[in-house]
Simulated scan of single mutants.
Amino acid sequence: MRAGRSPLEPRSLKVSRQVNAYAEGSALVELGQTRVLATVSLDPKVPPHMRGKKEGWLMAEYSMLPRATHDRLNRERNLQNGRRHEIQRLLGRSFRSSLDLKFFKNQTLIVDCDVLQADGGTRVTSVLAGYAALFDLADRLIKRGTLSEWPLLHELGAVSVGYVGGQLLVDLEYSEDMQASADLNVVATGSGLILEAQGGAEGQPITPEQYSELLRAGVAAAGALSRALHAQL
């Protein structure tokens, strides 16, 4: 057992909505000791490649606050940061896959995910937080009468999974992530459909069977986290 949970058991999840008084949608998600604040802003224009189309657009931004980790990080002023861009692309693809953008024609949704405290799984916690903030936005727009139909297409979940010391673990804490010989970040729907699987071997290659085992465990745990998330929305 690791900190009171089994190898295939995700950490405890806590969700708080409407945590920002100014954003159109917002949520704070805590997955174990990892905490992410997400806000959604509506911009009444679209980028050039979306002009004249029937759908709106969604983009995501990700950052870590300086004391999100044990040692202070410099603020991310370099827009060319490769890890940051990789995570932002993961978030953008995940959110666009779960949202019907025809309801936001000529608008851009900007999902900002800021890591307040990191203990492994910051990108998957950002997926959960960003989705919760989009849920908050949709709920507000429906209640206000701005939208007549629910715009979210899927109930989203996300989790990390990896082999640590030869054992398959889901929802890796930082100490586990640093020892993983292979790991994946899995984004999936509550019904078990895969939106994204990102990762692989850290040292020696793994077999297709091992990769499939990681993916299956990730999909199952992402579904469990999706259900836990929606129980609090």
Score class of each variant (00 low, 15 high):
R77C: 06
R96M: 12
L101N: 04
S126A: 15
V124D: 15
V115K: 02
F95D: 01
D114N: 12
D114A: 14
H85N: 15
H85V: 05
R67S: 13
R77A: 11
A68Y: 15
R84T: 14
R83V: 07
N106P: 02
L101T: 03
I110E: 08
C113A: 15
S94N: 04
Q107A: 10
G92W: 02
G82V: 14
R93T: 12
I110T: 05
G82W: 00
L128S: 06
I110M: 05
G82C: 03
L91A: 04
R123V: 08
D100G: 02
A68L: 10
L73W: 07
R89N: 04
Q88G: 04
A118Q: 14
L79T: 02
R89S: 00
G92E: 15
R67L: 12
A129G: 10
I87K: 06
I110N: 09
S126Y: 00
V115E: 08
P66H: 09
L116C: 04
L116S: 03
Q80L: 03
Q80C: 00
N106G: 08
V115N: 03
H85I: 08
R72H: 06
S98M: 07
T122D: 05
F103D: 03
N106I: 00
V127T: 10
T69C: 14
I87G: 10
E76N: 05
R93L: 10
A118P: 10
G130S: 09
L128D: 13
E76H: 09
V127Y: 02
R77W: 02
T125W: 12
N81E: 14
E86C: 13
Q117H: 12
I87S: 08
G121K: 05
K102F: 03
L109R: 05
R123E: 11
T125N: 04
D114L: 09
L73M: 11
L101K: 02
R72P: 00
L79K: 03
K105V: 07
